[in-house]
């Protein structure tokens, strides 16, 4: 019953957030200078009648509120309209790009979780020793460094100097080429975001180390790996919360990393659609990414709250 209430409140919050975001994006795009109908036609010479017909087709002559209402009433049935640039439906236009982005995010999420929790545990175990100091300071540099700067340096080292990994594009779609093409971007993302998880894991593990049950287990000569496992289980709630945050950061950072590695993902599509004023695409992409970010955070928070109790 309590869970049901919790979930329904969260769902309500999600809906309000989505509506709020969509209104902000919608009004921003329509108040901005530039005419979508013109963008649609490119540099072609057209008669005013044709221009009007196109404006009618995309409801561009209606007032803002009516336009928003038309969009919203279609959006709830998962019909997000047609892309102004390609003329195809928004879902068909964005689909392939989103799949690439999701692949990249998932890949680097796995890497970050392994690296962040692993190194965080090691760092806490060797507190104040050299290895801890090195890990903590490197983590500080990595949290501060913007992902695209790290990405460019990695491209230079691995692509230009060593020439061992492909630095642009996504390859032919096979699993091996997928991995080799996504490896550098995924490492870049991992470097940029895993420090967050590392620091939380380290501080939580230190907290657990100071608690009575660890002292007791030590006194009973329980095997060290068993102690570490119990500590990890007990520290998992805050770690899970930060994993939600990590996913959110990943989705933002991937937009920049994709541009750096020339990966045809949602980031590049969003940037170019913003410039071209392709309203339906921008609206859908922003909402889709925001939805993913908010929902993944909610799920992690929910599981974390279950563990805490």
């Amino acid at each position: 019953m309590k869970d049901l209430k919790y979930i329904s409140i969260k769902l309500l919050e999600l809906i309000i957030s989505m509506i709020f975001i969509s209104i902000v994006i919608f009004s921003l795009l329509y108040l901005a200078p530039g005419d979508p109908a013109r963008v649609l036609l490119g540099v072609k010479q057209v008669s005013p009648e044709t221009l009007d017909a196109i404006r009618d087709q995309y409801h561009l002559n209606e007032p803002l509120i009516t336009q928003y209402w038309i969009w919203l009433s279609h959006a709830v049935t998962l019909d997000f309209g047609d892309s102004i640039r390609t003329g195809e439906s928004v879902l068909a236009t964005c689909g392939p790009y989103l799949i690439v982005t999701l692949k990249l995010v998932l890949f680097s999420f796995l890497l970050s979780v392994i690296l962040g929790i692993g190194l965080g545990t090691v760092s806490a175990k060797h507190k104040d020793k050299l290895s801890d100091k090195i890990i903590s300071n490197v983590a500080l540099v990595f949290t501060s460094a913007p992902s695209f700067a790290v990405g460019l340096l990695l491209i230079f080292i691995f692509g230009v100097k060593l020439g061992v990994l492909p630095i642009y594009g996504i390859g032919d779609g096979g699993l091996a080429s997928d991995i080799s093409h996504l490896l550098l971007p995924a490492i870049t993302l991992t470097v940029a975001v895993s420090a967050l998880l590392l620091r939380i894991t380290r501080s939580q593990m230190l907290k657990e180390t100071a608690s009575d049950y660890v002292t007791f287990m030590r006194a009973r000569a329980v095997a060290p790996y068993v102690i570490t496992r119990s500590k990890l289980i007990n520290a998992s709630a805050p770690i899970l919360t930060s994993m939600g945050l990590l996913l959110a950061t990943l989705f933002s950072a991937t937009l920049l990393v994709e541009t750096t590695f020339a990966i045809p993902g949602a980031g590049g599509l969003l940037a170019s659609s913003v410039v071209m004023k392709d309203v339906p695409v921008v609206q859908f992409l922003t909402l889709f990414l925001a939805f993913f970010i908010i929902v993944s955070q909610m799920i992690c928070d929910f599981i974390a709250s279950k563990i805490r109790r």
Partner: peptide
């Protein structure tokens, strides 16, 4: 409401659109 939102995403859209 605003903290739940992806700020970089909104910044890209806002900066790109307002220009």
């Amino acid at each position: 409401l605003t903290l739940a939102m992806p700020s970089l995403l909104l910044a890209i859209v806002a900066a790109g659109v307002i220009g």
